[in-house]
Design a protein around this nucleic acid. Sequence first.
DNA 1: GTGCCTCGAGTTCC
DNA 2: CTCGAGGCAC
Length: 752
Amino acid sequence: MTQPGDFDPTSLTLDDARRLFEQLQEDLRLADLAYHQNDAPEISDAEYDAKKRQYRALADNFAPLAAEATQLNSVGAPAAAGFGKITHAIRMMSLGNAFDDGDVVDFDKGLRKYLGLGATAPLAYTAEPKIDGLSLSLRYENGILKHAATRGDGETGENVTANARTIADIPQEIANAPAVLEVRGEVYMSHSDFEALNQRHAAQGGKTFANPRNAAAGSLRQLDPEITRARPLRFFAYSWGELSEALASTQFAALQRLRDMGFQTNPLTQHCETLPELIAHYRKIEEQRATLGYDIDGVVYKVDSLDLQARLGFRSTTPRWAIAHKFPAELAWTRLEGIDIQVGRTGALSPVARLHPVTVGGVVVSNATLHNEDYIVGLDSKGEEIRGGKDIRIGDWVQVYRAGDVIPKIADVDLSKRPDDSTLYTFPTHCPECDSLAVREEGDAVRRCTGGLICPAQAVEKLKHFVSRKAFDIDGLGAKQIEMFYNDPTLPIKTPADIFTLQTRDGATLARLKNREGWGDTSANNLFAAIDAKRTIPLARLIFGLGIRHVGEVGARDLALHYLDWDVIARAVDAARPAALAHRAADEAEDAERIAAAQAGRRARIKEVRDKAIATYAVDDQARSAWEDLTGIDGIGATLGLSLSDAFANPDERGAIDALRAHLTTLPPEVPTQSSPVAGKTVVFTGTLEKLTRAEAKARAESLGAKVAGSVSKKTDILVAGPGAGSKEQKARDLGIQIVDEDGWLAMIEGA
DNA sequence: GTGCCTCGAGTTCC
DNA sequence: CTCGAGGCAC
């Protein structure tokens, strides 16, 4: 990187100066924005100063630039605190997992089915070791490293550019690069470097790292890049994000391109023509694992053809065209010292194993999830035995592993070592937090506290959800602060609305806050500003933040897109209430009828019973159509509809929601403005498709903004009919809906 | 009615 | 990351 001292603007042509000038201007603008709006500077003080000096020097030396300067009067260097955020141009996905050869075979089968390939048609892969480090995305513009971001939640990561620049494996400049090039790969630390680092730290009486991965993660997240520079980090490139032009036509060739550009790619990367070759390569890498000199946790397989990758596309969080074949997890034996119950946001009672601390895969584990009461007894959800049907008792020796190398779980129990004083665990029938009855619904795996918002555990967890990253994401108000405010007698936050009245609740808020340890004017005002920043909020985030059972991130987005406005949603859900109740009554009547019929040995008269139950509720047309409109949304069914309806009808919850609404302005969702010719159209596929498989046709249509439905109705815009189309085609004809064959459809979406 | 595929919920440790 | 369950296609 250019140092402030050796920067000489007079050596530049005006064009070069302008390019640099514009880049600096943008960097400074973003840094200022990040500092003021997020209280999280994108760059360090030193870097900010250096940029500002260069910027000023350019403006002083080139008159045309001085006229354009917008950043000369902005404030000085931001205080160092945390990292800025970078939103990835293309989401950083995670990978699906295969835990044995069978999973790999299924993966290959699934791909062939999706692509419509026979069992013997060629389908080549690349296979490479999965490095156990942390992923990093590097963005180059015109060959210059612009920024580096961690994976974060896949959508937004942390800006660690200054640190990435200190890593020798990461080129600062690339010759002959595409105008836009995002390189993705793994930052890691070798075994020898890790040991040397720990020895050095130990000698200086400093902290040592538990494993190379933590050392790499800790080193990359240093606020001072000079500390990162002293840490021996390395980087393997394995993928890419946004590109202004394709790198190659295959995965393998694209990696070769990256190597030519100066990146390290893993030497064990191999092109495999067949499934047995993949497995053989996996075995080979597994054998070499101990001698590689760095940690790997499996082998990644990717479809080699980039055209096929594009056809396969993505599921919600993973690409369809890749999978990670994991090595068997490390196991460790320890004693189960006790079982505690945690109460979740929805009231779920979850048992957690308290373990005698034990090292598993380089990390000391002292807790493990036990899922639910059946799991302790040794049964899975289908009532089938797990662990050979062995139950888990307090005092037992249990075998622990970290599922996906993260979540500690119990794999086995050693009955031969069961001590005489081991105790059977009885699952509580009442909530340990509020003593309300905890019930387990028929067919449900979890027992839930019925206390609702009365239960402090549920109330706190709901608040934590409200401020969480995918909901309101209020800086400085995380889980810890929520706990503190919830339990604070002088300045309580009991409901979401309380957050927004915090500052103005009484004249003494600031004084009260400052009485607490660690709070001063600055931190209090930062918190108030962070809260104010979220008084205007995207509708989907508000809906998600309410924490209504079954309404997750996607459901909230679907609701927002359908209704576009909060009041419309509220009116619709209220209007649908009688129909929702009728629906539940019908479900209950149906269950009762089924049991009665089974006992009496006769056939259940389900339709009759349902109709009768619905009739007892005076469901008017308005209620019926509101309910049908709601549950007609793709992905929203009766369960979700009922849950929503119940939340709105519950006086406590409704009160909290209405109180909250008074403080907020909602932003309507951004309706995807795809300009494809089929955007916003509802399409139905029928008959045999010959060029695309059905799954592929659906995914492609959806990516172009079309809605794919299963049956023809008035709302259908286009019917794509292949050979063998039957009643659907007739119905479409009757309704006067546009009908095209597969080629007609492909022509329609061509070029989009 | 059955069998995918996704989404939601809950969880650990740094 | 995993499991359970909801929703939908076959």
